[in-house]
Each structure stands twice: as structure tokens, then as C-alpha cells.
């Protein structure tokens, strides 16, 4: 069987911020179609910087990112048609209802991709993915939404527009156990069903173990280990990913 084609190819990524902080130091990894790839590491390791570069919000100092064959630095608008990005700090327009927000984002994507006929269907799918009652989405402004509700809305559109790559930065951060579980299930089920490629980060190792098909450990802007969760456990001799994380990241000293 032919190897799945790479949807994301990150090569020698270096990012030095104007103040001199070296956030990324030659990061390279590849994510194949249909994979749920978890980028793991401590705060400040460079995960969010990586996501922002892939989402065309930041420019790399050097290195290259290719999404679905498109170089994101050379053709940012083309790349953005293929990517959805939900940052760690979840937000929402205070004066808009959840439905108005979903309609805006979903139609923006599908029009840009030349698929306006699919807007209605994708919107319905997004509504379903939120798991929120329709009247809540239609009648209540997002200022009334809890953090979990906002997160569900964001993740819902990010999947429902069927991107080539969905980037979810700590998708369950700050959510209670039940909300985290439901959101995790939604992501896993949708990615499996529609072969959507997902790149995410998380500090919850149980979540990573159940959700990700492959993980990469990042420290001081460099990848220190990579593989399927089972492979990582085997390589490190750890009983679970948390232990593997401690050995790979914390055990080797934070950068």
C-alpha cells in the first residue's frame, strides 16, 4: 500500500523574535493525511509559534512550511484556504450570536474555496458538532457563552469546513473533565470519519494518548522525539505518555 501523502511538511524551521528570543531552532516534522498529530512540550517550547507560522500569522526566520503542496510563506492566502486554526486563547465576538459567527466563518472558507453551494450543509454540520442547542446558538450572544461553549463553537467550524489541516492549540485547555471528554470525542470521531488531518497541542497526556495517532516532543524549539504513542512508550520504557514526557522533556532539563 502506498504511504499516505504528507499534508504538512515542516522543514528546518527557525524563529528568532525581534527581542532576540530563539523560539524555534531548526524544527522539522511531517504530518500525513488523516493523522491526528500531537505536538507536546512545556510552555515556551515553541508549539504556539509553530502553529502561528503554519497559520501564516508569523513569518519564519528561516525554514519552510508546506501545507498540501502550498508553501505558506510564498502563498499565504492559498495556504489559508487549506488550514483552519483555533488558538489557545479562545474567544468570540461579544455582540454576535454563535450562529452569526459560524455563518461568517463557514461562508468565508467555502466562498474562498469556490464551494458556496456547500455552505448550508457545512453550517448544519458545524451546528451539530458544537453539541449546543440550536436556540442557544441562534438567540444568545457569544458574550453569554462559557469558555467551554466558545471552544466548542471554534472547534466545530474548524472541522466542519473540512480543511486539509486543522490546527488546534490546546483545544481542551481550561475545560472541566466532562467538557474535555466530549470535545475530545468530537475531534476524534470527526477526524476518523472524514480523514481530516489534525495538528494539536495539549498538556493533558491522557488526552494525547487517546486522541493522537502520532506525537512529537518539542523542547527549546527542537523536536527531541517522535512516533506513535505506543512506539514512544516502547522507546522510553515508560508506562504511559506522562512518564515518557517526564523522561524526554522534564528529565533532560527545560530549555
Amino acid at each position: 500500500m502506498a504511504a499516505p501523502s504528507p499534508v504538512l511538511h515542516v522543514e528546518g524551521l527557525v524563529k528568532v523574535y525581534p527581542g532576540g528570543t530563539r523560539a524555534l531552532d531548526g524544527l522539522s516534522f511531517t504530518v500525513s493525511e488523516g493523522e491526528v498529530y500531537g505536538l507536546l512540550g512545556p510552555n515556551g517550547a515553541g508549539k504556539s509559534t509553530t502553529f502561528r507560522i503554519i497559520a501564516t500569522l508569523l513569518k519564519p526566520t528561516s525554514g519552510r512550511v508546506v501545507v498540501d503542496g502550498v508553501d505558506v510563506a510564498a502563498s499565504p492566502l492559498e495556504a489559508r484556504k487549506r488550514i483552519t486554526y483555533v488558538p489557545e486563547e479562545v474567544g468570540g465576538y461579544r455582540r454576535l450570536t454563535g450562529m452569526e459567527y459560524l455563518r461568517f466563518v463557514v461562508s468565508t472558507y467555502l466562498r474562498a474555496r469556490g464551494e458556496p453551494g456547500r455552505i448550508g450543509e457545512a453550517l448544519e454540520e458545524a451546528v451539530e458538532l458544537t453539541g449546543l442547542p440550536r436556540e442557544v446558538l441562534e438567540e444568545r450572544k457569544m458574550s453569554d457563552y462559557s469558555k467551554g461553549m466558545k471552544r466548542r463553537v471554534q472547534v466545530a467550524w474548524a472541522l466542519a469546513v473540512r480543511p486539509r489541516l486543522a490546527i488546534l492549540d490546546e483545544p481542551t485547555s481550561g475545560l472541566d473533565v466532562e467538557a474535555s471528554y466530549e470535545l475530545r470525542e468530537t475531534i476524534a470521531e470527526y477526524a476518523r470519519r472524514h480523514r481530516v488531518t489534525v495538528l494539536l497541542s495539549s498538556h493533558n497526556m491522557l488526552e494525547v494518548e487517546t486522541l493522537c495517532t502520532r506525537v512529537g516532543f518539542i523542547r527549546s524549539g527542537r523536536l527531541v522525539a517522535e512516533g506513535a504513542p505506543a512506539e514512544i512508550l516502547e522507546e522510553t520504557g515508560a508506562r504511559n505518555l506522562e512518564e515518557a514526557y517526564m523522561r524526554l522533556i522534564a528529565g533532560s532539563g527545560r530549555g
Binding site: 501564516t56 489559508r80 483552519t84 486554526y85 483555533v86 486563547e89 468565508t108 474562498a112
Partner: peptide
Amino acid sequence: EVLLSLPLP
């Protein structure tokens, strides 16, 4: 950040 990541010039 979401707005700027949308496929809009």
C-alpha cells in the same frame, strides 16, 4: 488571530 487566519486578503 482567527480572523487573520481566515482565507481573506
